[in-house]
Computed example of a mutant assay.
Amino acid sequence: MSKTRIQLQTLIPEDFSGQRLDSVLAQLFSDYSRSRLQQWIQAGEVLLDGRTPRVRDKVLGGEQVLIDAAQDVAVSEDVAQPLPLDLIYEDEHLLVIHKPAGLVVHPAVGHPQGTLVNALLHYAPELASLPRAGIVHRLDKETSGLLVVARTLRAHTDLVRQLQARSVSREYLALVQGEMISGGTVDEPIGRHPVDRKRMAVVANGREAITHYRVEQRYSGFTLLRVKLETGRTHQIRVHMAHIRYPIVGDPTYGGRLRLPAGLSEAAITQLQQLRRQALHAARLGLVHPETGEALVCEAPLPDDFAQLLPCLDAKE
């Protein structure tokens, strides 16, 4: 077990007015437990507008929160494995990885090895001392595309701050069922499905989730969207697209039965049948480099299964 310092800051939104500070921080910094945040408050490691607050203090909204706290970091016990990595960018501070569909990010029950974490620990052993092996956000197993990984504690803290401040730009390409007329925004809270706890859903008591989308190309019966995340909830794009009744093609959890338009070519049908995952790809990632302060933008081309499908569809003007 090693020690590191966590530095976080944010403005408390006005709609939290009247709530207890510890409850508000648990919602704003969901990577940390409420009890851990309470400990930091009691230890004087949390400042509210420059003063040391109490756990039970009520917030007004608009206050500046600064957390500068010590945290124990366990050294990873996951196994390092010589698995292939598609590196889009690399320096001594961070890595940007192009994750293929089918690769699990973190080891878990059912996937103890053969994950992105196992590959990273082999490629960069120093990641064993970082939270979650330096991974600050994730992609679903069957979603392809870009992930950023911190290689130092300083970079990790800064990237987490950027994600919380919503200054990291994440753009996806998604093929959805149905023909959209125009782009838009889905602003609906997401939480656990009230019945099926393995799924997420739009629920009234969920966490804020905002997804922006615009039409990239229309096809007969389908639409290719460019989607931008403002928040990063579990399965957010998949849940939001299903909620507005344009589910992502190939999504086994939220997509329902695939609807094939009349007149679809045999080639398109074959490609759709061979697509064994949701047609969702994290195509573009933009952030501020944690060390140099310069803008870093990375892009990843569509993988073959996705790219070969599009030319088979009947494009519209």
Rank of each mutant, 00 (worst) to 15 (best):
S169H: 12
L103K: 04
V297W: 08
L103V: 10
A70N: 07
I6D: 10
S129Q: 14
P125K: 01
Y172I: 05
T4M: 15
Q162E: 06
L229G: 01
D57C: 02
E126V: 10
R132D: 14
P194K: 01
Y123V: 04
P112I: 04
G263V: 03
L83P: 10
L229I: 09
K99L: 10
G145R: 13
E179R: 14
G50C: 04
Q39A: 13
R233N: 08
D68E: 15
R151S: 06
R161H: 05
A74M: 06
T292A: 12
V288M: 05
R257F: 01
L153T: 08
D22Q: 13
P252D: 08
L309S: 08
V46C: 00
K228L: 05
L103H: 05
L21F: 11
T115G: 03
R161P: 00
H93A: 13
Q71A: 15
S30I: 00
L285K: 02
D31S: 12
R170F: 12
A70G: 08
G110Q: 10
G178Q: 04
A279K: 01
E90S: 12
L60V: 03
Y213P: 09
G255R: 05
A307Q: 10
D57E: 14
L260C: 02
S35Y: 05
L21W: 11
L159I: 11
L287N: 02
A74L: 04
G191W: 05
M180H: 09
Y254Q: 13
K198C: 03
H235Q: 06
V136D: 07
R257Y: 00
Q81N: 09
V160L: 10
I269G: 03
R34T: 06
E294S: 06
D68C: 10
V297C: 09
D305F: 05
E208M: 04
V202G: 06
P189W: 06
A307R: 15
R138I: 12
A315V: 08
P112V: 06
G286Y: 01
L260V: 15
A295Q: 03
V65G: 07
D304M: 09
G191F: 03
L296M: 13
I237L: 11
F222S: 03
L130P: 14
S17H: 07
L296Y: 11
T234V: 00
L48P: 00
Y246R: 13
E216G: 01
R170Q: 14
I237R: 13
M1P: 15
N118S: 12
V160F: 00
A209I: 07
I88M: 14
A300L: 13
H212V: 06
L285M: 08
I269S: 12
R166F: 09
R214G: 01
S35K: 11
P107Y: 14
Q162C: 06
D305Q: 08
S23Y: 09
Q273Y: 07
T10G: 01
G114L: 09
V249N: 01
I97H: 12
L25I: 02
D91M: 04
T234N: 05
Q162F: 04
N118Q: 12
L285R: 02
E14W: 12
D158A: 13
E266H: 01
S129N: 13
P112R: 07
P189H: 11
R238A: 12
G102K: 15
E291A: 13
P247S: 08
P189M: 04
Q217K: 04
D49E: 00
V65P: 02
R5I: 12
T185Q: 14
A70F: 10
A43Y: 00
F16Y: 14
R166H: 15
A283L: 00
S167T: 15
